[in-house]
Amino acid sequence: MATETSLYSAEINGGPASAAALTPLAFAGFAHFTAIQVRDRKIRGLDLHLTRLRNASLAFFGRALPDEELRARIRQAVDSGPADQSLTVTIYSPNGEFTTDSMDVQPEVLVRNGAPSNGPTGPLRLAVVEHERPLAAFKHVGESGKTYYLHQAVREGFDDAAFIDRRGHLSEATIWNLVFWDGEAVIWPRAEMLTGTMMGTVQRQLGRLGVPQRHEEITLDRLKEFSGAAVLNSWTPGIAVSAIGSTAIPQAKTFLDLLHRAHAAEPAVRV
């Protein structure tokens, strides 16, 4: 599994992130974030990242930082690092957690950058775990289950884990969205889950390319109907999935090429 290991810098509200300023955040579980890949100092789907941060801030803290302020913080990090890098933008309350002092408060922003990542090469075999992420619509911190189930999957001989909800519907994987292919249309799971920014960019570009898309409830029994499956996140628009649980899934090069073509069609913009 690819990981971001090299940290270039971290800034809080546009200034250096001191150890004293980072210590409360290091032990906090009430925060949300977005992960961004920067290439040639440009970002795809920037509007989706800003929308994600705005909506989550309103839900978590009752207030949101202006988009222009977030753009300025992201631009500062992009300009201070190499042309290709990973960015993580974390929004948190200066008043910590487990207290009403975190309500209706202006949040603060941590931006850190590190080495760029394109994710693993795949194909991936996914174990099946019954799990529903809390506050699934938000990308938030403090989710030890994602790493726990990844570790369990690897111990069982898989590469990662896919989640199935209490109704028996596949939703997402640990840090990935799931997507399927029936030979003609792209199928997205219908379940409580995070709508990833990569998922959003791929969906809108597939629409512009005229590719049929559907949202459907997907059970384990339905997996044999599909001619391809993939995972995607901010690292990549598509990595082939060769098995989910005990069900093998064909690797569909046409499908993977389509996902990558949709991603490439998304305009990359300077912040």
Score class of each variant (00 low, 15 high):
L256V: 07
G96L: 02
T197W: 06
P107G: 09
R112G: 12
T5S: 13
D79R: 13
E11F: 14
A19K: 11
G157T: 10
Q205D: 09
V129R: 00
K146L: 10
E108P: 05
R270W: 08
A17N: 11
E69D: 14
K139Y: 06
D182W: 01
L25F: 10
H169Y: 13
T3C: 05
A161I: 01
S171R: 00
T5V: 12
A262M: 08
E97M: 15
A64C: 07
T219F: 08
N95Q: 14
D104N: 15
N113E: 11
M198E: 02
D182S: 06
P212D: 03
H263D: 12
V89F: 07
E156Q: 12
L194D: 00
P123S: 11
A230E: 02
I244V: 09
D165K: 02
W235Y: 12
S171W: 00
R44W: 05
F98D: 14
L53F: 06
L206C: 06
S86F: 14
F158D: 01
R41W: 07
D159G: 02
V38P: 03
A35P: 04
T201C: 11
H140E: 04
V129D: 00
V231S: 00
L206K: 04
R133Y: 00
G145N: 11
R54A: 14
S246I: 06
G114I: 10
S86G: 14
G245Y: 01
W235D: 12
M193C: 09
T247G: 03
S144C: 08
R133G: 01
I36K: 06
A64V: 09
L22D: 04
L53S: 06
N177C: 03
R222C: 13
G114C: 10
D221A: 15
R73H: 15
Y92M: 11
I175M: 12
G114V: 10
W188P: 09
V129S: 01
P250C: 08
G157W: 00
A162D: 02
F138Y: 15
Q213C: 13
G207K: 13
K253I: 07
F158P: 02
A2C: 11
P123D: 13
A153E: 03
D159P: 01
G62I: 00
G114H: 07
S242L: 00
A268C: 08
R75M: 08
E216S: 11
T121Q: 13
K224M: 11
R52I: 02
Q85R: 08
Y8S: 12
S57R: 05
E225I: 03
T23M: 15
S227Q: 15
T5P: 06
I187Q: 02
R41K: 14
G245I: 00
M1G: 15
E184F: 05
Q152S: 10
D104Y: 12
N55F: 08
G81V: 05
P82H: 11
V269W: 03
G196M: 02
D47L: 12
L232P: 06
N233D: 10
S242R: 07
T3K: 14
A115T: 14
D84A: 07
I239S: 03
L53E: 06
A265Y: 03
S171A: 13
K139T: 03
S227P: 04
P250L: 07
F180R: 02
M103H: 13
L110K: 06
E266I: 07
G122T: 02
L7R: 15
G245C: 05
M103S: 12
